[in-house]
């Protein structure tokens, strides 16, 4: 397996949607290729960081204000 073949399957590997045979081939490639191992690990980390950090939070006061506005209009039948 070449690096570009590995890269083409990177998402499937990360999303855990590869067959056991393909997984074995990918792991075989990783054993001999530091570059792809770094790419895999840092891509996983990228996703994890975005998933676990709130970069646009909704402050409680704003949330209550928007909520009240929405419900007031819904009650009027919009």
């Amino acid at each position: 397996m070449t690096c570009s073949e590995f890269l083409a399957l990177l998402d499937d590997l990360i999303d855990d949607s590869v067959t056991p045979e393909t997984r074995a081939q990918l792991q075989e490639h990783l054993r001999g290729c530091d570059h792809c191992e770094v790419t895999l690990n840092t891509t996983r980390k990228t996703i994890e960081i975005y998933r676990s950090h709130e970069i646009y939070d909704l402050p409680p006061s704003l949330r209550e204000r928007l909520h009240a506005a929405i419900m007031a209009r819904c009650k009027k039948g919009c």
């Binding site: 990177l10 998402d11 990360i14 790419t39 840092t42 891509t43 990228t46 996703i47 960081i49 975005y50």
Partner: peptide, 13 residues
């Protein structure tokens, strides 16, 4: 999705 993930990774590096 693949390209988004790779671009973000590259930029965060």
């Amino acid at each position: 999705l693949l390209r988004a993930r790779l671009q973000l990774r590259e930029r965060l590096s």
